[in-house]
Computed example of a mutant assay.
Amino acid sequence: MSFNNLDQLYRSVIMDHYKNPRNKGALDDTSVTIDMNNPTCGDRIHLTLLVEDGIVKDAKFDGEGCSISMSSASMMTQIIKGKKVEEANELAEIFSQMMLGEEYDDEKFDLGDVEALQGVAKFPARIKCATLSWKAMQKGVQE
Rank of each mutant, 00 (worst) to 15 (best):
V114E: 12
D53W: 05
F109D: 12
S2F: 10
R22K: 13
N89A: 08
S31N: 05
Q118R: 13
K19P: 02
S2E: 14
K83D: 06
L9D: 12
E64S: 09
G63R: 02
P124Y: 08
H46F: 10
I68Y: 06
D113G: 05
E52Q: 14
K84T: 14
W134Q: 04
G82N: 05
G82C: 03
L49T: 11
K83I: 07
E93I: 07
G54Q: 03
A59R: 03
F95N: 08
Y10M: 11
P21T: 07
K122C: 03
V114F: 04
V114A: 12
S96C: 06
S133C: 15
I45Y: 07
M70G: 00
C129E: 11
D43N: 08
C41N: 12
G25E: 10
Q78C: 10
L100A: 11
M36P: 10
Q8L: 14
M99A: 03
D106C: 05
A92W: 07
F95Q: 06
L111C: 07
L100F: 07
D7K: 15
K128D: 14
K139F: 02
I14W: 13
A130V: 14
V85P: 09
K60I: 02
E107V: 04
D113E: 15
F123H: 14
E93F: 08
M98Q: 01
A125F: 11
S72Y: 12
E86S: 15
D29T: 08
D7G: 12
K135V: 05
C41F: 00
S96F: 03
G25T: 05
M36L: 15
C41Y: 01
D35T: 14
C129R: 10
R11S: 15
E107K: 15
D29I: 00
R126P: 15
E93W: 02
T30Y: 01
A73H: 05
L100C: 04
D105L: 08
G65S: 07
T30E: 05
A59I: 02
V120A: 06
T40G: 12
V51H: 04
E115W: 04
L9R: 13
L91G: 07
G65I: 00
L6K: 15
L27F: 11
Y10A: 01
G54E: 04
I79T: 11
G25R: 09
N4W: 13
V56G: 04
A73L: 02
Q138N: 15
A136F: 08
S74E: 07
D28Q: 00
L27H: 03
T40D: 13
S69P: 06
I79W: 00
E87K: 04
A116N: 07
I80Q: 01
K19L: 12
K108D: 10
M99N: 00
F123M: 09
N23I: 00
K83A: 11
K81I: 06
K135F: 04
T77V: 02
T33C: 02
A73W: 00
N23V: 01
A92I: 11
N38M: 07
K122M: 14
G63D: 02
D7C: 08
E103H: 09
E115Q: 13
Q78P: 03
G65L: 01
